[in-house]
């Protein structure tokens, strides 16, 4: 399998942010049935090695494409856009305010061991993420070369993803202290 194939090509999918997830899932399973090392247990060493590489690539591609934020990152990076070097201070003040408020809310809920509030905050963050994903989808549909705007949205999404992970681990710790 050529390593320079794009993830979309690998799954025989059109290059587009809007992706048919059930198609992606079923193609993933078909590809792994063809490439996974378990299917090459009795092959020559070269072929077993090849199978590990191919199955690894399929897994990486699938991990990237199935997650809308990672998919957007991938599409930006494929065009040479460097997300990591974008200045964070380019974020809108309203967004930063919202982040601070959420952080405070989480901290307070944590110190009061208020799992209910944390759960609520968690689903609120997921709502926000869905909205951002929708607007990323819109931006790609309008003009896929609008890197700056898309990049900004992706960075926003990354903030929320980290925040959600944070909330989850706090809840896990609180629940385990019962």
């Amino acid at each position: 399998m050529e390593n320079n194939k794009s993830y979309f090509e690998l799954f025989s999918l059109p290059v587009s942010f809007d992706i048919n997830l059930s198609e992606l899932n079923s193609r993933f399973r078909e590809l792994q049935k063809a490439a996974h090392p378990d299917k090459y247990a009795n092959a020559i060493e070269q072929e077993r090695l090849k199978s590990v590489q191919s199955a690894s690539l399929i897994n990486s591609a699938y991990n990237t494409l199935k997650d809308p934020i990672k998919r957007a990152e991938y599409m930006l990076e494929a065009t040479g856009f460097d997300l990591k070097n974008e200045k964070r201070n380019s974020q809108a003040p309203a967004f930063l305010m919202q982040q601070i408020e959420l952080h405070e809310q989480i901290e307070e809920a944590q110190s009061n061991a208020n799992i209910e509030l944390l759960d609520k905050t968690g689903s609120h963050i997921l709502d926000m993420l869905r909205k951002i994903t929708d607007s990323i989808s819109d931006l790609f549909a309008q003009d896929p070369s609008n890197f700056d705007e898309i990049g900004k949205k992706v960075q926003e999404a990354q903030f929320f993803v980290r925040l959600k992970e944070n909330v989850d681990s706090i809840i896990l710790d609180l629940e385990s202290n019962d």
Partner: peptide
């Protein structure tokens, strides 16, 4: 080496041909 490469490409193409 080249032969297993071709076999793998073939298997992958076959896996998606139905789709």
């Amino acid at each position: 080496a080249f032969y297993v490469e071709r076999r793998m490409n073939g298997n992958i193409a076959n896996a998606l041909s139905g789709h």
